[in-house]
Design a protein around this nucleic acid. Structure first.
Length: 725
DNA sequence: AGCACGCCGACT
DNA sequence: GTCGGCGTGCTC
């Protein structure tokens, strides 16, 4: 008999991703199979033929001429209706092929294994595992009133919740108690906990594993891109077969097959890592909301600095809000000592250094340096945040004005002192530092601006001869992508900080997230102003959240909390962002930003999509975009709808007619980073005040884009709900 | 996309 | 005389 199989062909292929094959027997939708395609053998999924892309002429061959299915993966259950609905929604919403979306969201190992090999893997998983100690049986730490309120709200009504919880207010405990509640309701129930970067928070898995050890050793599994393929397959299979009760993962875990999903948690929901920046550009947070809605279960979006979208959606219900906002504004005391819970630990005090009043070219101001020395003297730690690795972002010639441009990208190459190289952080081009200016031969070429290497050097000099509490030199460690390139060094460095073997920690954004350093009492942002001048209107909201998050690293030990300080070196000390930060008042800041956004008609008051093109020349990229937009008007003005014989084409045309007036399409422009690795990039913004109109329009437009051919075009794609424009 | 087939330049 | 460049074209 004839079966329709979903295969991973991309949206721009000339072939539909739903193909027909011969089978001896009927197989339920969602069954995994292996099928031949051309000279390849691919993983496919038995699918409903009604989802076929009808835009192309579908000539379905005789059954006799169809190729047979190679093998059926019958040792695991079929992917259920809910999972298939999720990937279908994702493909439609983010304008990608269904096959690419569905097959890419399965673990890579599954594509390589044969059916007997998979059977073997499952047998291994089914071997009884030694159960770890059962000592910890629904253990209950003392909760704050705010935690109690949040938990009772979440466990009483099925809704999306925004858990607006300050750093240190005990969000994780709320997640764990809610998970415990839903998992004890039903012995099969499962929970999905998403975090932005699981590699930075192995503690979370430990905390969950320890708390829920009585559910069995396989009850808590991780799912993230840092795992090896076989590890990922094991976790995936445990989740798919219902053995795993709790899945902890990064954004890709939103596609985990969880047949008994009862709760989703999205921790740090504002974090931009939830949005995929290649392939299917999905937002795992938004898909989590969709998924919970379809399953009629609750989703908890947790953050100390919620995204403006979630903030907007969690207005009071009377105001049309769709989420319930639960606030936890107070810090929990020292968790190490669960018998003595001190409430309302103070937040770090904000100290602004006005750089206008500092000597020219100051990198580390005197008052900040003094404060760091004080901390060292009394055995406390400091954390310095500087979001630029290397020694200096650019090298320049004082004579002719030459700068260390990258030949492949529209960016400067960064000066790395340690190995004397100029490195492009976009394409990787690396060359030794020239002795003299390549343009005029001048020997006086200098670093301009500041990087973590330079800060480390500067601080080492400044602290020379400065004694620690227990004697000896101050110990500095630098954590960035360069210093942690080798496997295990990050963990090693973090642990030395944790064990008090370090006095000052210098790092990039890497150190802002999650780490629970107990003895840090001073956090400083060395040069954060950049975002205030950025052309990206979301930059200030991201800066606020970064600074608040990093300030949360200070004073986590209740004993030291009163000494915690957050220092900011700025040329804009009166900027409203900093006054909001001073008051720890995200609500006021977010409310004001929302008013600004509403006035300007920006998200979340409008929906956006970017159409991007990459070509050998800027001209090729832009003219492709231009032609794609002109094709719309050509269709609209060429003929009235219903003139075509093809039903599908009529639907498309009438959608274009209907939605065009609700849509604004900008002219093609070069991207801010115009050239990366010798590829020219251009983009075009598509906006609408109606999300539905934008969706309908994009869907109707796509087939027209496929028809556009352009010499020199490398690729194009649509980014729906882009994070930066 | 992958992977074939297919026709022109510098190498054992 | 072969290896390999990437230009079209096809995949149930």
């Amino acid at each position: 008999m004839r079966l329709t199989i979903l295969v991973p062909t991309p949206h721009y292929a000339d072939i539909d991703c739903l193909l027909h094959y011969q089978s001896n027997s009927a197989l339920p939708y969602g069954t995994l199979v292996r099928v031949p395609l051309g000279s390849r053998e691919l993983l496919g999924i038995v699918w409903n033929d009604l989802d076929a892309r009808t835009t192309h002429e579908r000539v379905i061959p005789d059954e006799a001429s169809l190729k047979p299915i190679i093998e059926v993966f019958d040792s695991i259950p079929a992917l259920n209706d809910h999972w298939r609905e999720l990937v279908k929604f994702c493909a439609n919403y983010y304008q990608r092929s269904l096959g690419e979306t569905a097959l890419n969201s399965l673990p890579a190992s599954l594509k390589k294994l044969t059916s007997p090999q998979l059977k073997k893997r499952i047998k291994i998983l089914d071997k009884p595992v030694l159960n770890s100690s059962q000592k910890n049986e629904t253990y209950a730490p003392k909760l704050t009133d705010e935690q109690v309120h949040a938990i009772s709200a979440i466990t009483s009504q099925t809704r999306p919740y925004l858990l607006f919880g300050a750093t240190g207010s005990g969000k994780t405990e709320v997640y764990m108690q809610c998970v415990a509640h839903f998992l004890s309701q039903n012995i099969h129930a499962q929970a999905l906990i998403m975090v932005p970067e699981i590699n930075l928070t192995p503690q979370l898995k430990d905390r969950f594993s320890e708390r829920f050890s009585h559910w069995g050793a396989q009850a808590v599994v991780s799912l993230h891109s840092g795992m090896t393929d076989p590890q990922r397959l094991s976790s995936w299979l445990l989740a798919h077969r219902g053995t795993a009760r709790i899945v902890l993962g990064t954004r890709l875990s939103i596609f985990a097959s969880l047949p008994n999903l009862a709760l989703i948690v999205v921790d740090e929901e504002h974090d931009t890592s939830y949005k995929s920046d290649s392939g299917v550009r999905y937002s795992a947070r938004d898909l989590a909301v969709y998924r919970s809605h379809k399953l009629n279960i609750s989703v908890i979006l947790g953050s100390a600095t919620p995204s403006l979208e979630s903030w907007h959606h969690s207005r009071p219900k009377s105001d049309g809000g769709r989420y319930i906002r639960l606030s936890m504004l107070h810090r929990v005391g020292n968790k190490e000592d669960s018998n003595v819970t001190t409430f309302g630990s103070q937040f770090p005090k904000l100290c602004l250094v006005d750089m206008n009043h500092q000597p020219r070219n100051t990198i580390l101001s005197q008052p900040l340096l003094t404060a760091i020395k004080e901390r060292i003297a009394c055995g406390e730690q400091s954390l310095l945040l500087l979001n630029q690795r290397g020694y200096a972002p650019v090298l320049f010639c004082s004579d002719c004005g030459w700068k260390s441009d990258c030949t492949n990208c529209s960016a400067y190459r960064v000066f790395h002192q340690l190995d004397r190289t100029l490195r492009c952080h976009h394409c990787g081009l690396t060359q030794p530092v020239p002795r003299a200016c390549p343009s005029c031969g001048n020997l006086d070429i200098r670093p301009m601006g500041q990087g973590t290497e330079r800060l480390e050097e500067l601080l080492t000099e400044a602290l020379l001869g400065h004694e620690r509490k227990n004697g000896g030199c101050a110990r500095i460690v630098r954590i960035d992508a360069d210093s942690t390139r080798h496997k295990g060094t990050l963990e090693q460095m973090l642990s030395s900080v944790y064990h008090g073997e370090v006095d000052v920690l210098i790092g990039t954004q890497m150190i802002a997230k999650g780490h629970d350093f107990r003895s840090i009492t001073l956090v400083a942002a060395i040069n954060p102003d950049g975002a205030l001048y950025s052309c990206d209107y979301r930059a200030s909201e991201r800066l606020f959240s970064l600074l608040l998050q990093v300030s949360g690293r200070a004073g986590r030990d209740a004993q030291l909390a009163h000494r915690a300080q957050m220092w900011v070196q700025t040329w804009q000390p009166t900027h409203p962002l900093y006054s909001a930060l001073k008051d720890h008042d995200y609500q006021k800041f977010a409310d004001q930003l929302l008013i600004d956004r509403q006035v300007a008609g920006l998200t979340p008051f409008s929906s956006q999509a970017l159409m991007r093109a990459e070509g050998k020349t800027q001209e090729a990229a832009q003219s492709f975009l231009l032609r794609a937009s002109q094709a719309i008007d050509a269709v609209i003005s060429a003929s009235e709808p219903n003139a075509s014989k093809h039903l599908e084409e009529n639907i498309r045309k009438s959608a274009l007619f209907r939605y065009r007036s609700y849509i604004t399409i900008s002219s093609p422009i070069p991207m801010f980073m115009q050239r990366v690795a010798n590829v020219e990039r251009a983009q075009m913004l598509i906006e609408s005040s109606s999300r539905v109109a934008l969706q309908g329009f994009l869907a109707a437009w796509q087939p027209l884009i496929f028809q556009q051919k352009q010499k020199g075009l490398i690729r194009w794609f649509i980014d729906v709900d882009p994070l930066s424009i």
